[in-house]
Structure formats: C-alpha cells, structure tokens
Design a protein around this nucleic acid. Sequence first.
DNA 1: TTCATGCATAGAAAAACCTCTATGCGTACC
DNA 2: GGTACGCATAGAGGTTTTTCTATGCATGAA
Lengths: 122, 122
Amino acid sequence: MLERMTTISPARPLLPTKNSVGQREPGGAVSAADAEAIARVFKALGDPTRVRLLSLIGASEGGEACICDLIEPVGLTQPTVSHHMKLLVEAGLVTREQRGKWAYFAVVEDAMMAAASVICPG
Amino acid sequence: MLERMTTISPARPLLPTKNSVGQREPGGAVSAADAEAIARVFKALGDPTRVRLLSLIGASEGGEACICDLIEPVGLTQPTVSHHMKLLVEAGLVTREQRGKWAYFAVVEDAMMAAASVICPG
DNA sequence: TTCATGCATAGAAAAACCTCTATGCGTACC
DNA sequence: GGTACGCATAGAGGTTTTTCTATGCATGAA
C-alpha cells in the first residue's frame, strides 16, 4: 500500500503562474497571499543542507538519488535527511518516486526560476 | 556622520561567481561553504514580508522606496520593517542610500538569478 | 537652540526551525 | 515465517527568527 506515499507531490499550484498572478496590489506589487506562496519556495532553499541536497541530487547519476545516497555526503542522520527532503518536495523543488524499498528524488528544474520571475517580472 | 550608515552594502562576494565556484564536491555538487553562501541569499527571500517589501520597492516610482513608504503597505511597525530591510541589504538583494533624513532602497535585479544559477548551472 | 521627523538599535516574548533518538511500517531476501 | 534494510513519523532539546516596545541618534525646520 504505497499509493499514499508515492503521491506526496505538491499537487495544488504552488506559485501564481503568469496567467494567474493573483491580485496585485494597487501599485503593482504581489499580494500578501502570493508573497506567502513565493516565500514558501525560497524558504526551502534557505538552508545550507537543503541546498547541498538539491545540488547532490542534480549531480547524481541519472539526475536522481535516494535517501541512503545522501546521508553520508551531508553528514546528518537519516531522519534528518528525510525531513529535509520532505520540505523540498512540499515546496515543489523536488519530486519523489517510490521504487521498491527506495524512494528516488529528482530536481524540478524550473521551480526556482518560476518563483524568481514572479518577483522580478522584468 | 553618515558614511558608516551609507556603506552597509554587502561588500564581500556573497555568492560564488561563475569563475570562482569554489571546490565542487567530487561528484560535482556545490561545497558546504558555497551552499552556506547560497542559502544565506535564499533565506532572505524565505519570508513573506520580505518578498512583499522587495516587490513593493520594485513597483515603486523610480524603483526605489524609503522605510516610511513601506510601513503602511505591509502593516508592520517601523522597527520591524527596518529589520527586514537590513536583512535584504546584507543578502545583497537590495541597496541602501541615505539622502537627507531618508534611506532609499532599490532592488538589485540580478542577485536572485545569480543565486539560482549557481545551483542550476544548466 | 529646540522640536519634529526618519531611521536604527536593544531587549524580550512567542513562534518556528534544525537536529537528534526512538520507533513503526513496508519491502525484499533467507 | 523471520530477518535485514530503507524510509517515515513522533517527540524533545536547543537555537534561530519574527515581532513588538522602548529608546537613541541624525537631519532639517522653526
């Protein structure tokens, strides 16, 4: 019964897309609600360990890695690495796919740039 | 005696530049030191209030704003707004310039993208 | 000089965060 | 079935962050 685990993906639209940039404030600034969505993505990147995890996954064979591949490089315990990966998945920066005993994570290439371009539409 | 105040700017290189991307780990991932520098920038973006401040400044007349312009839109006290602006300046995401009684802040357009491209060299 | 304004700093309280140990659940192999 | 492995969750401890009130300093006007 792994269906539940394999669908931890973000699902709902994490960021206001170009066509759905919510209410901009009168002056053209992002709304409070959009700011919260954008900040959630960047907050996930605001920790050195998660930056390293993201980089390690991207540099891995086939662009994916499982928890057990990441524990030793970052030098933290398995539950801690699992916790960080959960945050990255929830932020939409990484996907998770269960294959047998292992959970494989892959980087969502455009997620970061999408968040950035909401702030800097220029 | 405002010299000190007008030079709060980041100064040291906040991010590993393309030509100075420090030691990459054996596999090609960013080093722990680089990860810390990158995370410091994103952490500054990881708060809804600071995202709004950044957006408000960018949407302002002339691309700059002073603290007193920002207090009412974000609905926080002046010391709190000052604190957030300090973090944004220290992260290199915003510049600060003192003009008379006022401190004017402007967005550093490329700072965010620079941080992003260190993680995603692709 | 005196006063008002704009901003920064100091200190404190509450909330959030990072990391650990302990434990539980599902998969694969004997 | 039993055992080993991979990963997630629960709870706790210590640190960091967010926000406030109180206060101080600098500028510009009266």
